[in-house]
Simulated scan of single mutants.
Amino acid sequence: MIENQERFDQARFNQAVALFDAANAEDPNQDEGQPKELLYGQRMSEMIGRFAPNASEAAQLAVRAQHIRRWTVPRNSYPMDKDGYHAWRTGLYTFHANTAGELMREAGYDDAMIERVKKAIGKRGIKVNPDTQLLEDIANLVFIEHYMLAFAASKPEYDEAKWLEIIRRTWGKMSKTAQAFALSGAIKLPEPLVPLITKAIS
């Protein structure tokens, strides 16, 4: 439920979320017995509800669609080098934004709201656009709580220096408010990594 003062059509919002979820329910990859990106979208919405319950309609739509249909653009569809990785990530921003925009139009949203959501999902104006920064905050909080530990397990070749770099980079993308939220006990930190997190941000 959106609780801010913006005027909105709850049925239209619900329809857009249902369309996002239906798209992500097609993900053949599973996480905890659910389609991976469907669960990710739900975790993003749950986190924004905890961190920013009065968030804008655009931000709430953007976090739900952050990874929409991601599995259809696999990493190996780009060159398997550093430049290819960055091109893949940049391409995903545009793909997710456009896919979300199409589904929002189907739900009845106008061009102005679609563009606002696309701007956030496309990571445009981070640090200056509130919707974009909020999406970045939520994505990093969700990563820390739900995915950082598994990511660490998948990268046994990373030494402490590499992990300190990753944590500092993640931390640096977050607003001061999100950093404080992460340290307040409001999210579950990955316990085995807490010493590294503490060292990285001290």
Rank of each mutant, 00 (worst) to 15 (best):
P156E: 07
P156S: 05
E157K: 06
E157Q: 15
E157D: 15
Y158H: 06
D159G: 06
D159W: 00
D159S: 02
E160D: 15
A161C: 05
K162E: 13
K162V: 10
K162M: 14
K162W: 08
K162T: 14
W163V: 12
W163H: 10
W163I: 10
W163P: 00
L164S: 06
L164N: 06
L164H: 10
E165K: 12
E165D: 11
E165P: 00
E165I: 04
I166W: 02
I166V: 15
I166C: 07
I166R: 01
I167K: 08
I167A: 07
R168N: 11
R168C: 03
R168T: 08
R169W: 14
R169M: 11
R169K: 13
T170M: 08
T170H: 03
T170Y: 01
W171R: 09
G172C: 05
G172R: 02
G172D: 04
K173W: 02
K173T: 03
K173R: 13
K173A: 04
K173E: 11
M174L: 11
M174V: 05
M174T: 02
M174F: 06
M174E: 01
S175V: 00
S175F: 05
K176D: 15
K176S: 11
K176F: 05
T177S: 08
T177L: 07
T177R: 12
A178C: 06
A178G: 03
A178R: 00
A178L: 00
Q179F: 03
Q179H: 01
Q179V: 04
A180F: 04
A180T: 11
A180G: 10
A180V: 11
A180I: 10
F181M: 04
A182F: 05
A182V: 09
L183G: 12
L183M: 15
S184F: 10
G185S: 11
G185K: 00
A186E: 15
A186Q: 15
I187R: 11
I187A: 09
I187W: 05
I187Y: 07
K188E: 12
L189F: 12
P190I: 00
P190C: 09
P190V: 03
